[in-house]
Amino acid sequence: MTPFELVEPASLGEALALLDPDDPAVRPIGGGTALMLMMKAGFFEPRRLVSLRGLGPGITGINEGADGALDIGAMVRLGQLERSPVIRRAAPVIAETLVTHSNVRVRNVATIGGNLAHGDPHMDLPPVLIALGAEVVAASPSGERRIAVENLVESYLETALGGDELITSLHIPSQRNRRAAYIKVTARSADDWPALGVAVSLAVENRAIRAPRIAIGAATETAMRLPKAEAALTGGASWRDTGREAAAEAPVIGDHHGSAAYKRVLVGVTVERALRRALAGVEIAG
């Protein structure tokens, strides 16, 4: 690694001031697991890293609102989320997903904010958070804004965040009365990055599926919703037909994990299976 300056601000305002929108060699660092890989490989040679470790409790907590909505500080470690009783109760699919994500040591260090800001498509959480309707709260010198997770990543490793903008927290709307499931498909070893991740979230009212959200990750350039499949499901399509719709709609790309044609097959089968898992034990009309 090349030498760099490390600064450790004690407040958000100070941190924002230390970022430089015009210099890509200045970046914030949370857990640093992803940045370290890029730095060790020589892909990223920082001039300055702005550590977010000293920013205090505002971005390190997990809070549940009265309605069941969750606010999660950007510096919450993935392992902390995984073990949190609040998360296990209010959004258990997150804890279930994290168990399959990377490994215990990485999750002990990596943060939720960093995980999302990295914009890596081969991650497990983005499709899950998209299915849950989550938003990030981003701060910059010009103020604060909310960005839906589905709009956060624009292309491979490129996000909607400005060079002087930081994710400060993650907001997950109440999941009461909703059910969710995530299925990770790996093409090589079981501890591999996903070849495909499929997350579904939906409500069941009067034996009918309401407001389904179907999201995929890893097989596409960015994690995304599949609105046609959602519409088909709302319109009463079978799980298998919903899967077919998803496979037809998803802009799947081929890579080390498999060809696009094969991954389209996986999308269809996995969407169907994720719906089956989310709805296990529930009776649906028709």
Partner: peptide, 26 residues
Amino acid sequence: GQGLCGCCTVLLDGRGVSSCLYLAVF
């Protein structure tokens, strides 16, 4: 060198971390 093999594991505040991916200053 990528936090994937676990050979560099140390316990930091009781929990395993990959010391090859961890900045010493932290």
